[in-house]
Design a protein around this nucleic acid. Sequence first.
DNA 1: ATTATTGATATCTTAAAAATATCATTCAGG
DNA 2: CCTGAATGATATTTTTAAGATATCAATAAT
Lengths: 297, 297
Amino acid sequence: MELRHLKYFMVIAEELHFGRAAQKLNISQPPLSQQLKQLENELQVKLFHRTNRSVEMTEAGKVFLENTYNLFNYLDYACETTRGVHRGEIGELTLGYSGSAVFDLLPTIIHSCNQHFPSLTLDMKQLTTSEQIKALEERKIQVGLLVPPIESPNLITEKIREEKLVVCLPKNHPLAQRRTQIDASELAAENFIMPPQQAGYGYYDAIKNIFEDASFTPNIVQTAKEQHTMVSLVAAGIGIVIVPEYTQFIKLDNVVYLPFNKHYPKITAMVWHKENKRPVVNRFIRVVQEQVIPRFN
Amino acid sequence: MELRHLKYFMVIAEELHFGRAAQKLNISQPPLSQQLKQLENELQVKLFHRTNRSVEMTEAGKVFLENTYNLFNYLDYACETTRGVHRGEIGELTLGYSGSAVFDLLPTIIHSCNQHFPSLTLDMKQLTTSEQIKALEERKIQVGLLVPPIESPNLITEKIREEKLVVCLPKNHPLAQRRTQIDASELAAENFIMPPQQAGYGYYDAIKNIFEDASFTPNIVQTAKEQHTMVSLVAAGIGIVIVPEYTQFIKLDNVVYLPFNKHYPKITAMVWHKENKRPVVNRFIRVVQEQVIPRFN
DNA sequence: ATTATTGATATCTTAAAAATATCATTCAGG
DNA sequence: CCTGAATGATATTTTTAAGATATCAATAAT
């Protein structure tokens, strides 16, 4: 059985006339009779009662016709879905993101995808930069939002935005009263909370760069992975912490955020695997490039 | 696109190797490559990534494979259903029946069909004999259970069973005290309730036959279509009525049923259209012939 | 009785599927 | 770095089967 047989059968069923059906199919009548006969032989079912004067459907024919229509509809649907996947318009991908993307970047991406990429199913996983690099290599996630630099030669990095680093300190801290810009050297004597180095070099190095700029070696009293944790430790008076500016969305009663008098940037980048073969991933990247990155620059 | 393309695609997807897939399909490798290429061209979608060393599915290919499996499953189902309809194993029909079939015949038929014809959907309509004949001619019902004789040359009749006619009279009637067999002539002076003649000749004639046998002209005071109605009228003292024996299932406090001292039969028959083309109808008739009729004889 | 209509059949033609032979690329092993 | 095995693609020929033409048989309308 081939789809040709089914197509011919449908047209005969529409016309109930072999001659007209053949015309509609741009073939002559005899092969049409033959093809239908083949179909009936294979099914072992007569699909039409036919005398030399008239054609009418059998009960079984009616049922088979119904099913044939469904089959072709399903085939159309299957082809369209497949094309959609090919063009990257349909599909799912897993996005890794570091904590600092939660406040503004992630909502913007989700919103843009809802608008420009409605048939994307976006799974999301919060991971540190190093976890993301591993996950990208292992194809557990397809795209990561993290803090560069990254080493891997298999991964492509594209900068999304730059955040200023700010200092977060308890409200009752002497510097907090000033409510003005801070010079890094003023922090020389402080106790610092730091992100763990193994979570990723980018953020860690951006902070270390500040210390180098101010020429002092910080006194590190605690490490913490999550932004929330770090800010809570500040509130508890354990020490102070340098965070990207959007962490200011975390508002606690007894912490304040103050800017530096110099621009210390922390970069957030989108990263993906060089040898990606999934169209949906390429399209997602394009949507971020075209819709999201411009809003942050 | 033809089913051949899809079959080939599935085997390539299974093997991920053109040579082995071709072997499995009993064709050589080059035509397999070509057919797949045709499919990909028609879809405008690459279904496999292939280097000269390896074959792997694309995202779109995976989706199309899934759909292809579904398509073939559906096709199998469609063919099986169609064959079932052809053999008369699947389908629905409408059965007409006269009131007197309700008590024993109809339940037996339903039970037999549930057992021996489970995928039959049986619609049922209570109709008089004449209504059934009309409905059979108009193909509104496919089989009827009625009281012969019938005239139409297009209809085939087969006797199912014979019932004795009995007389139904009020408990306080003088004859009711006897509780023995009645001679028809004893009823000469009674008031009679009769079925309307236009409901069908069979039952009416069977009763008329009794009057002729006893050589009197009955005094008809009322007509009624339904057995229930007739018996209720007897209970109300309007008159007496002659009914088939299974009407005794209708038990009212102040009516009794008495047999005749002669056998006055009423026949119930199965009737269907001579030019029936629906396999399900033939099969139903066969089930009744083989399963139901023997139980009543 | 005659003719037009309609699906089936027989035979021939053509298109396309499949086979054969060969090529290009790549990777393994020396 | 070369050689050979593995593998999918390409070119060409062969075979299969779809389709065309001519014709028939049966039926219904005139």
